[in-house]
Amino acid sequence: MTRFGYTLMGEQSGPRELVRYAQAAEDAGFDFEVSSDHYSPWLVSQGHSPYAWTVLGAVAQATSRVELMTYVTCPTMRYHPAVVAQKAATLQLLSEGRFLLGVGSGESLNEHVVGQGWPSVDTRQDMLVEALEIIRALHSGDLVTYVGEHFRVDSARIWDVPDEPVEIGVAVSGEEGVRAFAPLGDHLIAVEPKADLIAQWDEAREAEGSQASRKIGQIPVSWDPDRDAALERAHEQFRWFAGGWPVNAELPTPAGFAAASQFVRPEDVAESIPCGPDLDELAESVRPFLDAGFTDIAVVQIGDEQQDRFLAEAAGPLLEKMRALR
C-alpha cells in the first residue's frame, strides 16, 4: 500500500510555522512527514532555512502518529557522520520509534559553507559510503574507532541508543549509486520516477540477501483557488527545480540558482508542476511514481502563504484522490 507524506519545507517557512504545519498535516491524514535539511534556500524569494534537527525535535513532541524523516541530510561535510549518528539516535528516542534517517551526498549550496570546498561527485559518493559505515557501527551502541580515507572516529560511543534501530534511506540517482548504497541502506530515496532504478535497487538488495525495502519519492504541487496565483508562486519560488540534480548539486549560492533559472518561464514550470485548484490534476501528478513502483510519496505544497489553507481545505480531499489511484 502506497503511503503519502507531507514535506516540511524549511526553505520557505520559519521554524514555528513548520511545527504548526506538522500538526495540521498529521490531522489531515498524511502518513509521514519529511524535512529538508538545508543551510540556505535555493532562491532568495523563499526566504528561510532554520536548523532542521531542532525543528524535527519539536515536531516529534507536537505529533504522535506520523513517521518523521530527513529528506535528506548530508552526513559528510557540515556534519561529521558521528554527530549525525548521535542526532538520529536521539530523534528516534524522542519520537518513540517514528524516525527514519534519509541521507544523500549533498549539494554545494549547503555544504560549502564550512569552508572545505566541494569535492567531485565520485569523492562525495565515497565519503557517503564511509559515513554510513560509521553511523551503522555507532548505532550498535559499541565503542567505535574507525580509520577511513575521509573520516576518523576515535573511541566514540552513543550512550542513548534506541531499542528500535534507526532505519536509513539513501538518495540514489543511477546504477553506480545503487551498487554503492544498496548494501548499506535500508530504503531507496529518489526524486525522479525511474522504474529501472527501482528494478536495479531490488536486484541489488536481493543479491545481498537483504529484506524488501521502501522506495520514497517526492513531488511538488502548487495548490491555490486561483490558478494564476498558483503558477506565479511556483515560478517565483520553484523555478530552480527545472535545473535537475546534476546542475543543482553544484551551485553554491541562491544567486547562482537565480542566474541558472533566469530564463525559465512560467509555462516551463507548469509543464513539471501542477498548479491551481484542480485536485484531480494534482493527484494525477503522483501516477508516474506509482507506476514506477514507489511505495512512499511526499507532497511539497509550494509557498508558505497558502500552507494553512492547503492543509485545512485541500489536503484531505487530495489524499483521498491520490489513494484512489492505487
Rank of each mutant, 00 (worst) to 15 (best):
V161A: 11
E167D: 07
T123A: 14
D122G: 12
A195V: 06
D142K: 09
E164Q: 14
E176N: 13
I198H: 00
H139M: 05
P165E: 02
V172G: 05
I168R: 06
D196L: 01
A137N: 01
G185S: 11
V153T: 12
F181Q: 04
V153F: 07
L132T: 02
V191Y: 10
R136I: 00
D160C: 12
V144A: 04
G148I: 13
A195L: 00
L197W: 00
E167H: 09
E192M: 06
I134L: 05
E130Y: 02
E149S: 15
R157M: 15
G141M: 01
G185E: 06
A180N: 12
A195T: 04
A182V: 06
E192C: 03
G169W: 10
A182Q: 06
T145V: 12
D196P: 00
A190S: 13
K194Q: 06
L138K: 05
W159G: 12
D122M: 12
E149C: 13
I158W: 03
E164D: 12
E130W: 02
V170M: 06
L188I: 09
F151Y: 15
A137T: 06
L184F: 07
A190I: 02
V144E: 04
P193L: 03
H139R: 11
I168D: 03
V147S: 15
L132K: 01
L197N: 00
G141H: 02
M127G: 05
W159P: 01
E192K: 02
I135Y: 01
G174W: 12
A137Y: 01
G185W: 03
R124F: 05
D122V: 11
V129Q: 06
V161D: 07
T145F: 11
I198E: 03
V144Y: 01
D126T: 08
P183T: 09
R152W: 13
D163Q: 14
I158M: 07
